[in-house]
Design a protein around this nucleic acid. Structure first.
Length: 791
DNA sequence: TATGATATCCTTTTT
DNA sequence: GGATATCATA
């Protein structure tokens, strides 16, 4: 028997070996889904399937990387040739190869949310539409929904029920905005996230030859988290598999939590209809959690009407019952949770990293952070795309985008006057007008502007500034093929004045901006090194040297989650329930289990809404391996106001036999940690509430500095903002001798101790290569920017 | 053109 | 409450 099959349970084994039939693998929480998927692929390779005939699609880079590593461990470097990645990254690559077929060039850039929003804003303004009615966010989400459902502007305008809906919503011009938006994106040689899927469909629909080619190549298609696919993704898979039907999808209908992003739970529910020969495999044994947790989660999810039948069970120990806390306020809730967490971890002798606090909305993290900080407990917090949301990152990316794709007007507008170089709104508007009239990009329009004879000295000065900008971009653009990726990025960062503008502002924020820029540049270096290693290992062809476009596309499709920070090893994790999907922790705290919060206010009006929230709750609960603790409050600060709360319906949906009775709030008993008498009358309760409020006020007031009772842990996720060691004074115009030398031991605020292995002089600075050992490896740093201390 | 003041909006968000 | 956007003003 193949080694790959060892240790798999019968259901898992079946799901692995039947790789030639269309397969639907229903994988309950913690049922070894990734293991099955990776084993199936490894098994296929072992059976002689060629790696590049396999297409494996995931939703996150993280999932793709994890799978690749695990397959690698099973079958070795053959894994590298598998086409594995996120929907967006795989198809952005395919679109790049076939860009001309759909009227783009291979240099097309990717618009992120803010770019689309800005474009929508300009269109709304140009058409003199009421910006209160045509809110960019609303328009954008409508466009996104349309694209995800593969409704083109033409089809939209022709659809009476959609246009009728728009008239009702007082946005009758929507279809025209949508049309114009698409036109402009194409004109700018840009695609938004949804385009990557929509345009792929268009390509596969309109070019049978190209479709055939990929059908031929992708003999075996596997899709992870199938319950989260939208219609566009669904149809791509159908199209690609049409000739052979060798599709394997893995998912759990009970964990479908992304309908607001267009995910269609129907895709998984009706898989058997689409692929009648499909075999269904159910993975029902949970290897993650205790029996209590699995049974409790089942007791909640069975309140949903629509679901696939399955009997999830755990063969692990029974485990502790689920505990439910009730606190008066959100602040107290945080205090209780954090105290309990600390005691739990200390008693069990566990690592901080084995516990997580989950919440429904990001803004709940604030009070929790405060409580953790007060107690000196290290924590890390996942918050959206914070890194790529930073202005300085977007600015630098804007420069790179403009060089790669000069038609990218959104990038142009972003960088033309950032940092301020005296090219104001009026000038930008004029360029936009010229571009509009000539039907060209703003970058091309500049030539016209420059050629016009200037009327006065003011105009002359502006023309000078604009020509300076143009020549700067041109110079860097010509250098891009000669220079390394890193040097190219560095050139843009310095010569644009971006770095200088932050350096002169000597604030912690500015320093953090510089750090972020440095980090972005480092990803360029790492990218080069990685691809070079791939060439060495024969996993990549010699001629496929890393290009800027490739790196850029990669970065645009990256999220914070992908940059796992090795430094954040032993820390408590804080995140939304959504971000927690796929993760597991020994101790899980779910806070804010209250009506109108979890389930969310927006969701409770519809059955589907509540059912999705229930699945979300199911996801939250099943993250716990050993112990789940839920909490709610009587009142919490919402939008600057105290508002009353009632316990979440989901709390009472948990079968009471799985709930610790001392913590059972349905027994009208107060949490014993509070030591409050049950018989308290209403007035006392109210008084107490006000007392709590009063105390909170006092606590927030800046008090005289007292010696901190708990020593603060040195590093939090916010320490990027902390100022460490002021950078050495800039001053020196010519290249000053480097203050470091090869072999020197240095210390970096983030990467720790390291040794300088190489120094290379640059125009105004020195490039240092520093080896920070196993966790961080070699980093390229700038002598002037990096806050290194010589040891 | 940069800055401070006021208005406005508040889910979730793998890409 | 607070982050962000837009506006008025020097």
């Amino acid at each position: 028997m193949s080694k790959i099959l060892e240790g798999l349970n019968p259901a898992q084994k079946e799901a692995v070996i039947n790789y030639t039939t269309p397969s639907l693998i229903i994988a309950g929480a913690g049922s070894g889904k990734t293991r099955v998927l990776t084993s199936r692929i490894a098994y296929m390779l072992e059976q002689g399937v060629r790696a590049d005939n396999i297409l494996a699609l995931t939703f996150t880079k993280k999932a793709a990387n994890e799978m690749r590593e695990r397959i690698d461990a099973m079958v070795g470097s053959a894994a590298r040739r598998i086409n594995m990645g996120t929907f967006h990254s795989i198809f952005s690559r395919i679109l790049r190869e076939n860009a001309e077929a759909i009227g783009y060039t291979r240099e097309y850039t990717i618009y992120e949310t803010t770019d689309s929003k800005n474009l929508i804003k300009t269109i709304v303004k140009e058409r003199n539409l009421d910006e209160d009615k045509y809110k960019p966010g609303l328009i954008q989400s409508r466009i996104s929904t349309a694209k995800n459902s593969l409704i083109t502007p033409g089809a939209y305008a022709a659809n009476a029920s959609l246009t009728g809906e728009d008239r009702e919503k007082m946005i009758p011009e929507f279809a025209n905005i949508y049309l114009e938006y698409c036109r402009r994106c194409k004109h700018n040689n840009a695609m938004d996230f949804d385009d990557l899927l929509l345009q792929t469909n268009i390509l596969l629909r309109d070019r049978p030859d190209i479709l055939l080619k990929y059908q031929d190549q992708f003999q075996y298609i596997l899709v992870d988290e199938y319950q989260d696919t939208n219609y566009a993704q669904y149809l791509i898979v159908r199209r690609l598999s049409h000739s052979h039907n060798r599709v394997c999808v893995v998912g759990d209908d009970a964990q479908s939590i992304y309908s607001f992003r267009g995910a269609k739970i129907e895709n998984i529910l009706s898989f058997k209809r689409d692929y009648p020969q499909a075999q269904v495999f159910k993975l029902e044994q949970n290897y993650r959690s205790t029996q209590t947790i699995v049974d409790a989660a089942n007791s909640v999810i069975k309140h949903n009407t629509r679901q696939m039948q399955k009997q999830c069970f755990s063969a692990a120990e029974q485990g502790d019952k689920i505990r439910i806390f009730k606190a008066y306020t959100d602040r107290e809730e945080a205090e209780l949770v954090v105290t309990d967490l600390r005691d739990r971890v200390r008693e069990g002798g566990d690592e901080w990293s084995e516990s997580a606090i989950l919440y429904r909305t990001n803004n709940q993290s604030l009070v929790l952070e405060e409580a953790l900080r007060r107690k000196g407990i290290p924590y890390k917090i996942y918050k959206g795309n914070s890194f790529y949301d930073h202005k300085e990152i977007k600015d630098l990316l804007g420069y790179i985008r403009l060089v790669v794709n000069p038609k990218d007007d959104e990038a142009f507008k972003r960088v033309i006057n950032t940092p301020a170089r005296g090219i104001g709104d009026t000038t930008v508007d004029r360029i936009a007008a010229i571009a509009q009239a000539a039907g060209c990009s703003m970058w091309e329009a500049i030539d016209t502007l420059v050629q016009q004879p200037p009327k006065d000295s003011v105009e002359k000065a502006i023309v000078k500034k604009v020509t300076d900008f143009v020549s700067f971009i041109r110079t860097v653009a010509t250098e891009r093929d000669i220079k390394s990726l890193y040097d190219f990025g560095l050139e843009l960062a310095t010569r644009s004045g971006l770095i200088t503008s932050y350096r002169v502002t000597n604030t912690p924020e500015a320093q953090s901006a510089i750090d972020n820029i440095e980090e972005l540049l480092n990803t360029m270096q790492e990218y080069t090194e990685r691809t070079e290693a791939e060439i060495r290992n024969g996993e990549r062809e010699e001629f496929e040297t890393p290009t800027v476009e490739e790196w850029l596309a990669n970065v645009m499709l990256m999220s914070d989650m992908d940059n796992e920070d090795p430094e954040s090893n032993n820390k408590v994790t804080l995140m939304t329930v959504h971000s927690a999907k796929g993760l597991e922790y020994k101790y899980v705290y779910i806070v804010g289990c209250e009506e109108n919060l979890f389930p969310s206010l927006m969701a409770i009006e519809s059955l589907e809404g509540v059912e999705e929230e229930r699945r979300l709750f199911y996801v939250a609960l099943t993250r716990a391996k050993k112990l789940a603790t839920l909490s709610c409050t009587d009142m919490r600060f919402r939008w600057g106001q105290m508002s009353f709360s009632t316990p979440s319906r989901f709390l009472s949906e948990i079968d009471s036999k799985y709930v610790e009775s001392d913590f059972d709030l349905r027994g009208a008993r107060r949490n014993r940690a509070l030591n409050i008498d049950e018989q308290e009358d209403a007035t006392t309760v109210m008084r107490r509430r006000y007392d709590v409020r009063f105390q909170e006020r006092k606590a927030t007031q800046p008090t005289a500095p007292k010696p901190q009772p708990q020593p603060q842990q040195p590093s939090y996720s916010v320490d990027r903002l902390k100022k460490v060691n002021t950078a050495p004074a800039s001053g020196s115009s010519n290249l000053a001798p480097c203050s470091y030398s090869v072999g020197q031991r240095v210390s970096h605020p983030k990467f720790g101790q390291g040794t300088i292995v190489a120094i290379e002089p640059l125009a105004t600075d020195h490039k240092l290569e520093v080896d920070f050992g196993a966790t961080y490896g070699k980093k390229t740093l700038l002598a002037k920017l990096a806050k290194l201390t010589v040891l």
